[in-house]
């Protein structure tokens, strides 16, 4: 294969804008992290609420949460990105739509964060539900027998246990959100993968760009794994999840 390796490409002045191609990669890294963390905040909070709703005694709320989960986890992320960015502003009242398209700060990034957040929320919700449902019924009954209200049962019995049981699958969701953030390039967010593609197209040193991107993605995910390992070591319930992290 006729490929000219050139690792020096990252120190070349970029085709346009200030800085080198390495700066492009670092800017991509920044947006990958920012978009993912912001989306994770949405995903974790919305997902937690939905997960709880899926297990409550109120049938209507269970239905609402189940509908949300099925819609958001069954529509491909790529399609959802497109809908949030191109379709939602057209469905809004005219002024709101125009604001979303031109007035809103960084429309691509905001749309990507919302989309990724609400999509991942559906997955987080299922993890929270499975955590709650894995706690033996006896504990719930015992809590009610002691005179706790439903809110108190969740607050003092189900959630403290549930969240600690689902730390390992939540770690996976947290990792996924960083990797899924690359889909945001389809609506023009110049994150890590998009910048690698840009560099490929302007310097034709694609293997170098994507190798560096791979290393940076691994660094992000390794950091997350180490962090979650600390969390797991601290909060795991002995006997419920393995002794991982030791």
């Amino acid at each position: 294969m006729a490929y000219n390796w050139n690792w020096g490409v990252f120190f070349q002045d970029a085709m346009f804008g200030p800085g080198t191609y390495l700066d492009w990669m670092l800017s991509g890294l920044k947006w990958t992290v920012v978009v993912s963390l912001a989306a994770w905040l949405i995903a974790f909070s919305v997902g937690s609420v939905l997960g709880v709703l899926r297990t409550t005694s109120f049938r209507f709320l269970r239905g609402v949460a189940a509908t949300y989960v099925e819609i958001f986890r069954n529509v491909p992320l790529l399609v959802q990105m497109f809908i949030w960015y191109f379709v939602v502003p057209e469905l809004m009242p005219k002024d709101v739509g125009r604001w979303m398209k031109t007035g809103m700060p960084m429309p691509e990034h905001t749309s990507a964060i919302l989309c990724l957040g609400f999509y991942t929320a559906s997955r987080v919700a299922e993890q929270v539900r499975s955590g709650i449902e894995s706690i033996s019924r006896g504990q719930t009954y015992a809590a009610y027998a002691m005179g706790l209200t439903e809110v108190q049962v969740y607050r003092h019995v189900l959630l403290p246990m549930g969240y600690r049981i689902i730390i390992p699958p939540m770690t996976s969701e947290f990792l996924s959100i960083f990797k899924n953030s690359s889909v945001a390039l389809t609506i023009g967010v110049l994150e890590l993968t998009a910048q690698s593609r840009q560099i490929t197209e302007f310097t034709f040193q694609g293997f170098e760009a994507f190798t560096l991107a791979t290393v940076l993605y691994i660094m992000i995910t390794m950091t997350v794994i180490l962090l979650m390992r600390v969390v797991e070591g601290r909060f795991r319930v002995p006997g419920f999840i393995g002794t991982g992290g030791r």
Binding site: M15, F16, G17, L185, G188, A194, R197, Q198, T200, E201, F202
Partner: peptide
């Protein structure tokens, strides 16, 4: 993304 036109306008 990645066209000569992007380069020209930028």
């Amino acid at each position: 993304q990645g066209t000569t036109n992007e380069r020209a306008i930028k």
